[in-house]
Amino acid sequence: MTNVVDLKTAALMTVVTMRLGRQLLAIPASALREILDPLPVTRVPTADRSVWGVINVRGAVVPLAELRFAFGIAEEPQTEASKMLVLEVDLAGEPIVVAVAADAVLEVTELDRTTMEPLPPKGSSWPQSFVHGVFRTKKGLHLLPNLPGIFAAQAAMPGPAVTQ
């Protein structure tokens, strides 16, 4: 069973907002398993920056994917606000568990899907296939990442794949 939200049917989406650098992202709460303080990361030899290590989550080995790499966001040092989000995402019809790092987790909120705007076809440095759309809120512009699209692209890269 997968927890991935169906973006075509849900009028209101419950999301967890997070920050990577100055960029705000909205992660569907239905994909969220848990939020953790940063855990020790075991680096995977020959891995690229997109999935560069694994973490131990209660005895389960979980790949750590780097959304910064997908969106071209510069690395920042860890702070007290840094977190890891453990997500369950549908990849090629199968649920996978993957962790992503966040500079901060901000809040759980609802966004009205009908207010989602498409990514402009030109002028954006983000790959179109990595973003479902954007939301303008009082707190700023929130990207709704296409997690399956990002992880499928990362799995297709040479080296270790995102698997569970």
Rank of each mutant, 00 (worst) to 15 (best):
P121E: 13
W52I: 09
A102P: 06
A65Q: 04
A152P: 01
A60W: 09
T46P: 01
P63V: 05
A161R: 14
I55S: 07
L143N: 00
E34G: 10
P160T: 10
L7W: 09
A10T: 08
V105C: 09
A99M: 04
L36P: 01
R43T: 14
L143M: 08
L20M: 10
L85G: 11
V100K: 08
P145F: 03
G72C: 02
R19E: 09
K122P: 00
V131M: 00
P158L: 01
R58Q: 13
P95R: 08
A152F: 04
A104N: 00
F69I: 13
R19K: 12
E34T: 12
F135T: 03
M116E: 07
L106Y: 04
L12P: 03
L20K: 06
Q128H: 13
T42D: 10
R58F: 09
V108L: 14
W126R: 02
P127L: 10
L12Y: 12
D6M: 03
V89R: 05
A31R: 12
M157T: 08
T79A: 13
F151E: 02
S82N: 12
V98A: 07
I55F: 04
W52A: 15
V162Y: 03
S124G: 09
P127F: 01
E80Y: 12
P40H: 10
D6W: 02
M157S: 11
I96A: 12
L144V: 08
S129D: 15
A102F: 07
A11D: 13
I27W: 00
W52R: 13
A65D: 02
